[in-house]
Simulated scan of single mutants.
Amino acid sequence: MYTTINEEGILNNYATEPEMYFAEYPSPEQQGRYALQGGLAVLFVTTLVLIGLGVS
């Protein structure tokens, strides 16, 4: 972090920016896990909606 001071004596603090890097394409194993997580999320949300409809 670095600080600057303007003419009026007001301090400005600036955060250090992280180093940038390119993302890597997910491996087939990671893609499978993402698909499984997506399926479980759809099942969970569908269950919540059906329970909400059943209770109301």
Rank of each mutant, 00 (worst) to 15 (best):
E7I: 12
E7V: 13
E7N: 08
E8L: 12
G9I: 09
L11F: 08
L11C: 05
L11H: 12
L11R: 05
L11T: 14
N12T: 15
N13P: 04
Y14S: 06
A15S: 06
A15E: 07
A15Y: 00
T16M: 11
T16H: 09
E17S: 13
E17V: 14
P18S: 03
P18N: 00
E19N: 04
E19Y: 11
E19P: 01
E19K: 04
M20S: 12
M20I: 15
Y21S: 14
F22T: 13
F22C: 07
F22W: 11
A23K: 06
E24R: 02
E24H: 01
E24F: 06
E24K: 03
Y25S: 09
P26H: 00
P26L: 00
S27K: 05
S27I: 06
P28M: 00
P28T: 03
P28R: 00
E29L: 07
E29M: 03
E29D: 11
Q30C: 08
Q30A: 15
Q30E: 15
Q31A: 07
Q31F: 08
G32N: 01
R33A: 11
R33G: 04
R33H: 13
Y34W: 13
A35F: 04
A35S: 02
L36F: 10
Q37H: 10
G39I: 13
G39N: 07
L40R: 01
A41F: 12
A41C: 05
A41G: 05
A41P: 00
V42C: 05
L43H: 03
L43T: 10
L43Q: 05
F44S: 10
F44Y: 10
V45A: 05
V45D: 00
V45N: 00
V45S: 04
V45T: 02
T46W: 03
T46S: 13
T46E: 06
T47W: 13
